[in-house]
Design a protein around this nucleic acid. Structure first.
Length: 493
RNA sequence: GGCGCUAUGGCCGAGUGGCUAGGCAGAGGUCUGCAAAACCUUCUACAGCGGUUCGAAUCCGCUUAGCGCCUCCA
């Protein structure tokens, strides 16, 4: 009997049995990237964690609607400048060109890491009406106020009826007590209030004309608007990086509650940070890696490049809610480990139960293998413990290798167990963890090796072998060309 | 300052009140023309100090160290 899926809910700070609101459907919203520059590896980690969560939910048979947004407006810098606008000015491009460029890049990167695409990928600028409606509702509910063309959420007012800070464990009094004196001349009633709508300064490029002002929406609003639109007032899972918990997710809950009276997600999942030498990887600290730097090895902290699947495997070896430290040594051992897993994947994929084999089962072996298979399910059911899942997969790797070297006979396992082992191993490796076999073999180098054989055979006038090699290569779409002074080749047309 | 998290063997990293995580690296063995792979066995653990308990690395307290959020951040 396989236990039920349990997830750690940040909202309750407890591991809970996962019970979707309306099974078999599961709605999951994940905060996506702000597309003003290249995503770095820390960003990638979060999205790969949720990719695996998405994959496992599907593996369990849930009908998942996975929504991951693209933030293309409203995300401000300390200076009050919009990130996208700033980059657009800097590069002398249209803001939408910036958005398109980095959204494309993001999609490419995620595809490289074998991430499934979300079912809906809405953008903030595509949902201006929904955001405005939400602001109106909050104004009507007395939880927002207009001030000098901007609209703010009234945190103190909200806190009278709903606790503000339930997700991050903060109290309004504490927050107020240590409020720092930020930029003066604020239109806000309280430092805790956050913008729903911002009046645009004259030089601001991205702007929409509304009854309040010619301006743009606050950053937190888009996620509330889009999750409600596509998943409803109540939905199952909301995810994002740990660093979004406060204030972003806290504000989302307040906005949802302030609009619909519902808090949005039932389960909040937060992924932990990728660190470098124990410090959070972040653009501002300057310790971030771009995916392409990691793959090519062109980075001062790297000895060599690592393939996308090695990186994915490396990340899957830790739990999504733990910090993961990034280092050469860790990556190198992940690389070797992944090669081992990969070889086993190749062997088991190619191996089918042979005909005419009578089972003569060894109960101990059968039991061991079944336990390993069960354990893969248990591990993933325990809050998506990919690290433990991989440990169990490696136990299966030993069995696969033993079968391959004939140290373990197929007869001893029996067809039923063999099939279960094969399906479990491939299922968890490829479908759940999203790892796939990667060949780093250079086909053209292999052709050269074969052509050397061809040349030697020709010199020895071993025409039987010559013909054999030539026809085998032709089967692979390679034509051998005997030149006067050398042997050349071309692709068959 | 407030809130929270983490400290595991040479490295990375799971986990649990008593039963082998796993990977990488190390040692021994089997196999082998050589080499490799593979398989088997094996050595290094649970930050420190107290407490609870028949029993704690696992629970509680304190100490130390580090980190995150509180300001944009996945």
């Amino acid at each position: 009997m396989i236990a039920k899926l349990k997830v750690f809910n940040s909202l309750t700070r407890q591991k809970e049995i996962f019970e979707p609101l309306s099974p078999p459907h599961v709605g999951m919203y994940v905060c996506g990237p702000t597309v003003y520059s290249d995503v770095h590896l820390g960003n990638v980690r979060t999205f790969l964690s949720f990719d695996t969560i998405n994959r496992y939910l599907r593996f369990l048979g849930y009908k998942v609607r996975y929504v991951r947004n693209i933030t293309d407006v409203g995300h401000l810098l300390d200076s009050g400048e919009d990130r996208i606008s700033k980059k657009a000015k800097l590069d002398n491009l249209e803001p939408m060109e910036i958005v398109q460029k980095y959204a494309n890049d993001f999609h490419e990167v995620m595809a490289t890491f074998n991430a499934l695409t979300p079912d809906i990928e809405p953008s903030a600028t595509g949902h201006m009406l929904e955001q405005m409606e939400m602001i109106k509702a909050m104004l009507k509910n007395g939880l927002a106020y207009e001030s000098n063309g901007s609209v703010y959420f009234d945190v103190n007012k909200y806190n009278e009826s709903h606790p503000y800070g339930i997700l991050s464990g903060r109290k309004v009094e504490d927050l107020l007590a240590q409020t720092r004196n930020l930029d003066g001349g604020d239109d806000k009633k309280s430092q805790l209030d956050f913008a729903l709508w911002k009046k645009a300064a004259p030089e601001h490029i991205m702007r929409w004309d509304t009854e309040w002002s010619d301006g743009f929406p606050g950053w937190h609003l888009e996620c509330s608007a889009m999750s409600t639109k596509y998943l409803g007032e109540d939905f199952d899972i909301h995810g994002g990086g740990m660093d979004l918990k406060f204030p972003h997710h806290e504000c989302e809950i307040a906005q949802n509650m302030g609009t619909t009276g519902h808090g949005g997600a039932k389960y909040w999942l937060h992924t932990n940070m990728l660190t470098v030498n124990g410090q959070k990887m972040s653009k501002s600290v300057g310790n971030s890696f771009l995916p392409r730097e990691l793959m090519s090895g062109e980075h001062e902290l790297l000895d060599r490049g690592y393939s996308p699947m090695t990186i994915r495997f490396f990340m899957m070896q830790s739990h999504y809610a733990s910090t993961l430290d990034f280092s050469n040594d860790a990556l190198e051992s992940a690389r070797k480990g992944f090669v081992k897993l990969s070889n086993a994947l190749r062997l088991i994929t190619a191996l089918d139960w042979p005909e005419n084999v009578e089972a003569n089962t060894d109960e101990k072996q059968v039991q061991q293998i079944n336990t390993f298979c069960d354990n893969c399910h248990h591990a993933m059911n325990d809050d998506f413990n990919t690290a433990l899942t991989i440990a169990h997969l490696f136990n299966i790797v030993k069995k696969i290798n033993s079968i391959h070297t004939r140290q373990l006979n197929l007869e001893a396992i029996g067809q039923e167990t063999f099939i279960r082992m094969k399906e479990t191993f491939i299922g968890f490796t490829e479908e759940v963890l999203g790892l796939k076999y990667e060949s780093e073999i250079d086909g053209e180098s292999l052709i050269q090796i074969i052509l050397n054989e061809y040349r030697e055979a020709k010199e020895q006038r071993n025409f039987e072998k010559v013909d054999e090699l030539r026809s085998r290569l032709k089967e692979q779409g390679v034509i051998v060309k005997d030149m006067k002074d050398r042997v050349d080749w071309a692709f068959d047309e």
